[in-house]
Amino acid sequence: MNIHDLQRDFVAYAMSIGVDKIGFTTAAPFTELKNRLRRQQELGYQSGFEESDIQKRTEPLQLLDEAESIVAIAVAYPSRMQNAPIGKRGARRGIFCRASWGVDYHTALRERLKLLSTWLEEHVKGVRIESMVDTGALVDRAVAERAGIGWSGKNCSIITPEFGSYVYLGELITNIPFAPDKPMEDECGDCRLCLDVCPTGALIQGGQLDAQRCIAFLTQTKGTLPDEFRSHIGNRLYGCDTCQTVCPKNKGKINWIHEEFIPDPELAKPLLTPLLTITNREFKGRFGHVSGSWRGKKPIQRNAILALAHFKEEAAIPDLIALLHKDDRPVIRGTAAWALGKIGGDTAQTALHEAEATEQDEEVRSEIYKGLQFFK
């Protein structure tokens, strides 16, 4: 089979197993990206979750020594939920970002990439393959952009004409010399809606993100959230979709395509108060299959406390007091203290004074002090 026929049949197979877009590019270094990543490091804009070695992130030959091509895939996920529950006083709800609806996309894309790898192994003797999703060394968006999957939007997402920016990305490096696709023209134009509405100003300029200020990153941290960001979290439990939901290119892109990503409304928009007392076993059993669970329950619980403070949910005061007095994690005790002050009321104030008399941890004491300042 010649390379042209192989590539054609490979694309057809990819579509048959639930890949929504596929593109090809060379294994040449990502030279411009290398300079951008160095600048990001210098500015302290990286999240710390990514591969720290810039060489590995930008030179495919570092990952596969015979690399000739990179195959980029995109799989669409939904932007809307059917039968979404409505939160109300006494039953407030948080929300997971759209990329965490349904099954963990890492699992779903790895399964597809494994099938693609197996197909190539069956059709090409001596083929070598290195595949990755999200946590791999290569920058998914840079690969997808060069492979013609979509253009890199000002919101730092890959935007496709067919599915908007609601796509998961993955890639495989191979020693097969596939014909490369052409990159797509940037269609953002003069639009800057995503820049203007970013809650924390994390989008510095088109295509440049300070991950340390991005709510999607902040919701995944495990420590006490810095004061300046607390009021911006809202009811977000994991991730942030603001720069996607305002994008005109996402208008009408609903993407109810893959059953595995259709969300369970009670998991995507869960009640907040029950999250405060959920056990590790319960958390894994309920949320373990979604990507938003990867950091464990602690960040989700901290964010749930902040969401209850955002709503000034008085019904949660007894649960927050219980956390303040009994939880063994300083971050949770401290966040509960701040939330009690934010919500207010005599019961909350009394609880803070009682905790002030017994709390030994300095960070928690600082949060108790902040909580009490709300009453002045």
Rank of each mutant, 00 (worst) to 15 (best):
L116H: 06
S52N: 13
G148R: 11
G150L: 10
G90V: 03
L372E: 11
D327K: 09
R329A: 13
R192L: 12
A348S: 15
G234R: 12
S291E: 10
K269E: 10
L324M: 06
I159Q: 03
L109I: 10
N250M: 09
G102W: 02
A316K: 02
L218T: 04
A268S: 14
E32C: 02
L272K: 06
E122V: 08
S16E: 08
Q55L: 14
F10M: 01
V103G: 01
D181H: 13
K298D: 11
D181P: 08
Y105L: 09
S231P: 04
T174Y: 07
N83D: 14
D104S: 11
A99W: 04
A76I: 05
R302H: 03
P226C: 02
G90C: 03
L271E: 10
I278S: 01
R38I: 14
W256V: 04
A12Q: 14
W119P: 02
V124E: 05
A211V: 03
F311P: 00
Y105F: 14
Q40T: 09
K370D: 12
E42Q: 12
R8K: 15
Q220C: 09
T350M: 12
S79V: 05
I343W: 05
T25H: 04
F375L: 04
M1T: 06
Y45Q: 07
C156T: 15
I129Q: 06
R89P: 00
T277W: 06
F261H: 09
K370T: 10
T350C: 07
A179G: 02
H310P: 00
L271Q: 09
I262W: 11
E59F: 11
A339W: 09
A307F: 04
E59G: 00
E50H: 08
I317T: 13
I343K: 06
R89W: 03
